[in-house]
């Protein structure tokens, strides 16, 4: 499976980045003025602080929205293993799944005795969720 990104208009993306940068500059400046006003006990510092906080919240929301529109494909390969078991002595062997494996397929002779090895189960371990993304 390939890795790629969903196409997003470059112009729109640059415009969005510029708007975000502008918003962040305005918000940080506003916070700075608000803080200075508070230190100097000037009137109206609260409006600057509120504007700064809301501006930063808006920037964070915008960035989060943009993130959801950039789709990165992370292919998930399930770690599927094949468990073979000797029908006679119970010797077990776990290895990676190979094409052509299926449950209850006889799979050669047992290395410990002269019994037959049979694929007793094929499964994947926890830790991976189905899906491409």
């Amino acid at each position: 499976m390939s890795t790629g990104k969903r196409k997003l208009g470059t112009g729109l993306f640059v415009l969005f980045l510029l708007a975000m940068a502008f918003l962040i500059v305005i918000s940080v400046s506003s916070l700075y003025f608000g803080y200075n006003g508070y230190i100097r006990e000037e009137e109206g510092y609260l409006i600057y602080l509120i504007t700064g906080v809301f501006g930063l919240m808006l920037a964070a929301y915008g960035a989060n929205q943009m993130r959801s529109h950039i789709v990165v494909i992370q292919p998930i390969e399930f770690n599927v293993v094949t468990l073979t078991e000797c029908e006679k002595c119970g010797f077990r062997n776990i290895r990676k799944f190979e094409s052509g494996d299926y449950v209850l397929k006889t799979h050669g002779d047992c290395p410990k005795c002269d019994g037959q090895m049979v694929i007793s189960s094929i499964y994947h371990e926890e830790g991976q969720t189905p899906g491409l993304f």
Partner: peptide
Amino acid sequence: ADALTGALNAFAKGQP
């Protein structure tokens, strides 16, 4: 859709 996508490899490789 996620469930169907997860099934792709299993069906392609013949896994239970």
